[in-house]
Amino acid sequence: MDAIINITINGLATGMLIFLLAAGLTLIFGLMDVLNFAHGALFLWGAYAGIWVFTQTDSYLLGVFAAVIIGILLGYLLERYIILPVYGNHIRQIMITLGAMLVLGELVKVVWGPNVMIANTPAILSGSWEFSGILIIKYRLFVIFVGLLVFLGLLFLLNRTKLGLVVRAGVMDKEMVQALGINIRKVFLGVFILGAAMAGLAGILLGPYTGVVYAEMGLEFGLLAFIVVIIGGMGSVVGSAVAALLVGILGSFASYYLPDISLAVNMLLMLIVLIFKPSGLMGTKEAVK
């Protein structure tokens, strides 16, 4: 029982982190049909910058702030200078964003050195609670809480605000929204930056969760988020939330009970989804040509 609860909490926390990455990706794709393989770089930079500020100033809040700011900044640059010139062409998008991912990943090594960076847990969130003999690590609950908050905030933004209305309409029919006199490019830039900020936030949240961050995790988590987006259905926020939690929980159970195949679980899940329902669990866009 003890183990099962802890594994579930672990899985939920991981799932929430992946969701923060995948939500941005899925919106970016849904709205503008853009495939962004550099999303992991924003996450990576959020993690490094956030943890660096955190260790320098000893204030976790400042670290989170720094991570989100760097996410926004890089997201803006990425959208304007890398993705804008390749609108409407998937193959070029995949290639150019992969290139951006490589450059940003290596730049992290230039700025902070090639070694891993140790991340401490902020004092207020360290330690654990005990409920009738079951130990629960505080920081994991914190991650789940933040993830849930962002998820609800995102749902509110999409379903209850004017901006959300435009975004949802844009996902459905981009041309129609443009015909109604809305500058969809500006909306898209906004959505891209929102996604980048969430990626940066996920980065700083991950730091104390795993204890170390390293440069290769950018591509790793970027691809993981992509897997989640495909499982959930491209363009669907709820879909990627469900898929992220599924991947998180399955992953943590597999690494406990079947460590040999734990690495393959996500891949297998994606393969099954792609074979039987290529548009994803909650996808609306056609996957078959």
Binding site: H90, I230, D260, M267, M270, L271, A287, V288
Partner: peptide
């Protein structure tokens, strides 16, 4: 057979996953 009917990025991700499975198999 499984993926070339799909859009290009699905093919990309599918092949990525299969290669990943080969990697895991070779490791394990």
């Amino acid at each position: 057979l499984l993926t070339l009917r799909l859009h290009s990025h699905f093919f990309a991700m599918f092949t990525f996953a299969i290669a990943g499975l080969f990697l895991v198999a070779a490791e394990k």
